[in-house]
Simulated assay, not measured.
Amino acid sequence: MLDKIPIRKIIHVDMDAFYASVEQMDNPELKGKAIAVGGGGIRGVVAAASYEARKFGVRSALSGAQAKRNCPELIFVKPRFDRYHEISKQIRKIFYDYTDLVEPLSLDEAYLDVTENKKGNPSASLIAKEIRERIFKEVGLTASAGISINKFVAKVASDYNKPNGQKTVNPEEVLDFLEALDIRKFYGVGKVTAVKMYQLGIFTGKDLKLKSLEYLEEHFGKSGSFYYYIVRGIHNSEVKANRIRKSLAAEHTFNENLSSEIFMLEKLDRIAQEVSKRLIKSKVSGKTVTLKIKYSDFTLQTRSKTLPYFISDKDVILEVAKDLLFQEKLSDSVRLLGISMSNLNTESTNKKPSKPESKSVSVQLQFEF
């Protein structure tokens, strides 16, 4: 089947412990030490951890209290998102020296399609190496990269030789690479899905490949077809230079749990203001308002309402959020509230996604990677 899938030269660049590395770069006293960005205070949550901290099991989304128990020497650093945005722009500027087909996934990672590139370099591997060297020389940070025929394999490969390394999966190596891969390493397979796959006897890509399309759709719904195709090296999603934003959100974790809706209204006002500010800055509006509620026991609840018209005004967003808050009684005290806008007016021109096609350009083994 590999001889019938489209072949592109895709690089996935992923910065190494980005937030933490920026803090260590800007403050030499933090170099070589276990640090966590965020996580300070009783209710704090870790946003990023240095590799020194990761050795102790400190990871993003871990509570600050647990992180400190894991690593008593851990140093908490307050996030500086303006600085991270500044550094991210410098890195992306380097990307655009090689191709205009750059699809950022976040501040610290992006896909690049270098099938045809500004340097006229036929080797995607050498381009990735040059980009990483430039990031280190011009910015002062290390990056890892994955290089392969599509976004999925490149994404998986970028994690293979972290930190400060890269992995190329050539066209003729793709199937063997995926078959040998632990199912937990498949991008798109989360912890819950991995456990379900284990229960079904699926531990590696090879195990996954033995399952039929019907079997996977029966057990995993719409995701089943995704798993069926990716393990066969088929992922036809192109690198999109202008990714269409599908949602926009803001949220806040409280220092103390809130037990009354009345006390939450002031918090919602500020969150709605931030959401409106981001919508206006992005020049978009949306129809669907979703209220996110995280309770003190960490259970999560969402409540949504779709309007017949697009909105971006803070007062309107707040009114809908209030309606959602009072929609039903809260089951416990609340530690976090968030508001997100989706069904944005950027989606009106979206085409309905289709299933991967298997007819395209034939693989050429001399296709240089």
Rank of each mutant, 00 (worst) to 15 (best):
Q327E: 15
K322L: 13
F326R: 15
K352W: 08
V363G: 08
R232P: 02
T288M: 05
L336K: 11
A53Y: 04
A145T: 01
N27P: 07
S304P: 02
E103D: 12
S276I: 05
G57A: 09
I127Q: 00
S148N: 03
E274D: 11
D97H: 11
K246F: 10
I11Q: 01
I311R: 03
F369L: 11
S223C: 05
T204S: 15
R83L: 13
E368L: 15
D97A: 09
I317S: 00
S247G: 14
D207K: 00
T302G: 03
Y187L: 09
N164D: 12
M1T: 15
A67Y: 04
R69S: 08
A241L: 02
P72N: 11
I244K: 14
L126K: 15
S125G: 11
E103R: 00
I135N: 02
D207E: 07
D108L: 12
G286E: 06
R69V: 11
K155Q: 03
V153A: 04
S276E: 02
N121T: 13
L325Q: 01
A20L: 11
A48I: 03
T306Q: 06
S282D: 12
L291G: 06
K137P: 00
M15K: 00
G140I: 06
K162L: 03
E52F: 06
A124Y: 04
S63N: 04
L105R: 01
K329Y: 02
V192D: 04
D113W: 12
G38K: 01
F95S: 03
I10C: 06
L325P: 08
L325E: 14
I127E: 06
S63E: 00
R232H: 12
T193K: 10
E251S: 15
